Amino acid sequence: MSVRLILVGPPGAGKGTQAELLCEALGIPAISTGEIFRRHAKAHDELGQLAESYTSRGELVPDEVTNKMVAARLAEQDAADGFLLDGYPRNLSQVAALDSMLGESSIDAVLSLVADDDEVVQRLLGRAAEQGRVDDTEDVIRHRIELYHAQTEPLISVYRERGILVEVDGMGGIEEVAQNLVSELKAFLTK
């Protein structure tokens, strides 16, 4: 299926897992900004060195650098017939940059994993305990969720206004959520 998608959802909603499953089902690449950053850093290319100059100081990579990395990744052959963006865009500035790269009407659907904040906190605390991540305290997790609401909800509103937002409950089991994503997406694309 040739489709251009964006996947959004709060921390702990299972975006990475669902992106992988959905892309496998649809035969399109998952394009994650985290993976793009790691690839450029490993290659020690110009964009990787630029990004690392920020992350090594504990700063966020500026939108301008992220946008260039995403544009380069979307220009690769495997993305020509569709893709799923995971972790991009994260703010309204990046929405405008993506519109500039692709054209405003070129995203087929934005899949939003909807999750209850308190359930997500419990899920992430459980994951932190399993993985021995002592820095993932409840306060830290709640702060990440607040940042998500502040930065990402405005772009969800943009895509809702464009009529391409598909909301799916992200709090079921992995297979259940995956099946719901596929069925909701197919229903949306065939309407």
Rank of each mutant, 00 (worst) to 15 (best):
D135T: 06
Q122C: 09
D108R: 02
V65A: 05
A43Q: 09
D45C: 08
T55A: 15
H44F: 01
V70Q: 02
S53A: 12
I36N: 00
H40G: 09
L111D: 10
D135V: 03
S100Y: 05
V114P: 04
V65R: 02
S93K: 11
H40M: 02
E130G: 10
A30F: 02
L74K: 08
I36L: 09
L125Q: 11
G103F: 11
T33N: 02
V61T: 11
R90D: 11
D81E: 15
I28H: 05
V120E: 11
L84E: 14
V120M: 14
A80Q: 15
E104T: 13
T66Y: 00
L26I: 03
A80N: 10
V114I: 14
Q94D: 14
L102F: 06
M69N: 00
E35K: 10
R133A: 06
V120A: 15
R38K: 15
A30G: 09
L60N: 08
V114Q: 14
E52A: 13
A72M: 05
R127E: 13
D78A: 04
H44S: 12
N67K: 02
L111I: 11
A43T: 01
S112M: 11
S93Y: 06
R73F: 01
G58V: 04
S32W: 08
A75E: 09
R133M: 07
A109L: 05
D45K: 02
Y54T: 07
M101T: 13
D108N: 12
D81K: 14
N67T: 09
A71S: 13
V61I: 13
A71K: 10
F83D: 09
R73D: 01
Y54C: 07
M69V: 00
A72K: 07
G132W: 10
F37V: 12
G126R: 09
V61N: 08
L124M: 14
G58K: 08
K68R: 15
G27K: 02
I28A: 06
L26V: 01
R39P: 00
L26H: 05
G82M: 11
S112P: 00
Y88N: 03
I36R: 00
V114C: 13
Q131L: 15
L60V: 05
L74C: 11
A72V: 05
L47K: 03
Y54I: 08
S112L: 15
V70I: 14
A109S: 05
E64L: 05
D108K: 01
G34H: 03
L74W: 06
G132M: 10
H40T: 03
S100L: 09
I28Y: 04
D136W: 01
V121A: 11
D45W: 01
S100T: 12
G27F: 11
F83V: 05
G34V: 04
K68Y: 08
V70H: 01
V65W: 04
N91T: 06
L26N: 05
I36P: 00
